[in-house]
Amino acid sequence: MKTKIQVSDLKVHYGNIQALNGISFDVYENEILGIIGPAQSGKTTLLKVINRTLEFAQGTTVEGSVQLDGVDIYSIRDVHGLRRRIGMVLPLPVGLPLSIYDNVAFAPRTAGMRKKAELDEIVERCLQQAALWDEVKDRLDSLGTKLSGGQQQRLTIARALSHQPEILCLDEFSIAVDPITTMRIEDVLKTLKDEMTILLVTNLVQQAKRLANRTAFMLNGDLIEIDDTDVIFSDNPASQSTFDYITGNFG
């Protein structure tokens, strides 16, 4: 199995608050890695380090290293290019004040794509993949922010796929999505796995169980354990706190 991302002794501080206490693990190519853990455990922070958007918060420090295909991401000069290699879906849809079409075409355009036919093709494919195409194909010109919460979330998924990322990070994507749509997106993720590596942060442990090849359990900035999903969800994972969290006897 090829290693796609290698995280080594990663420490992150927000000012005086330590959010990650030196965690190390590998992510394999074309796997779905589920990341579970209670609130404040550092899951979102981890994703923000990987696509280097942590830099927009004030006063953060990052120690240790994250390697993407063997290259330290902090040594990459073209940070915009790096971010295009990673698709990011945030917990709540962030309304970009553009039409549905322009939302999806935004990233390809900023990367220099101009041909209408190519953009049309990308927009349709990404909206299909995000299970949104049928609902919006007749009104691609209306504002993305006018869609329902669940539709907006699927729009952000389409957007994250629009720059053909190698890695797709999803941060609790189903918070604002109804269960049926969640299932449809989960099916999409299963097929997307063939094309990309997926990091699935989720507060629904069953979602990790359904989708992930391996699952990591995080707690208060520590990586408690990472193993095959079958092992994590078995009766005897390596750590008692993992077992407690999954069985709902936590805290």
């Binding site: 958007t53 915009h80 309304g95 970009l96 004040p97 935004f106 900023t110 990367a111 952000t156 994250a160």
Partner: peptide, 27 residues
């Protein structure tokens, strides 16, 4: 303008001028 707007736009690989023109300014 909420930081999440900026983050979301930069996460798409946008350069600063795109973020300013298409996201920060309209908001």
């Amino acid at each position: 303008v909420d930081i999440s707007v900026r983050e979301a736009a930069y996460a798409l690989g946008a350069k600063r001028r795109h973020v300013i023109v298409h996201h920060v300014f309209p908001h």
